[in-house]
Amino acid sequence: MSSQKPTINDWDLSTTNLRRLKNVNYEVAVIPVGATEAHNWHLPEGLDFMHAGHVARESCRKAWQNCQNIVCLPPLPYGVDCNQMSFPLAIHLSQSTLDQVMREIITSLKHHGIRKIVIVNGHGGNNFEPFVRQVQSDLDVHVFLCNWWKIGFDKYDEIFTRPDDHGGQMETSVAMALCPELVEIENAGTGHAPPFRFEALNKGWVKTSRDFGKLNDHCGVGNPEGSTPERGRQYLELACDRLSGFLTDLATTPIDDNFPMQP
Results as ranks from 00 to 15, higher is better:
151 I>C: 03
154 D>G: 00
155 K>D: 00
157 D>M: 01
159 I>L: 05
159 I>A: 03
160 F>S: 02
160 F>K: 04
160 F>E: 03
161 T>K: 11
163 P>C: 00
163 P>H: 04
164 D>K: 02
165 D>M: 02
165 D>Y: 07
165 D>H: 03
166 H>L: 04
168 G>W: 13
169 Q>K: 07
172 T>P: 08
172 T>M: 08
174 V>P: 03
174 V>C: 02
175 A>C: 08
177 A>F: 12
177 A>R: 09
177 A>P: 14
179 C>D: 09
181 E>W: 10
184 E>H: 14
186 E>G: 04
187 N>H: 14
187 N>Y: 11
188 A>H: 13
189 G>M: 09
190 T>K: 12
193 A>L: 05
194 P>H: 05
198 F>R: 14
200 A>S: 15
200 A>D: 15
200 A>K: 12
201 L>E: 15
201 L>H: 14
202 N>S: 04
202 N>G: 01
204 G>N: 07
204 G>F: 03
207 K>R: 11
207 K>L: 04
207 K>F: 07
209 S>Y: 13
209 S>P: 01
209 S>W: 15
210 R>Y: 13
210 R>G: 03
211 D>H: 12
212 F>G: 00
214 K>F: 02
216 N>K: 06
216 N>S: 07
217 D>Q: 14
217 D>M: 12
218 H>V: 15
219 C>N: 14
219 C>Y: 09
221 V>R: 02
222 G>H: 07
227 S>E: 06
227 S>W: 11
228 T>S: 13
229 P>R: 15
230 E>D: 08
231 R>M: 13
232 G>R: 11
234 Q>I: 02
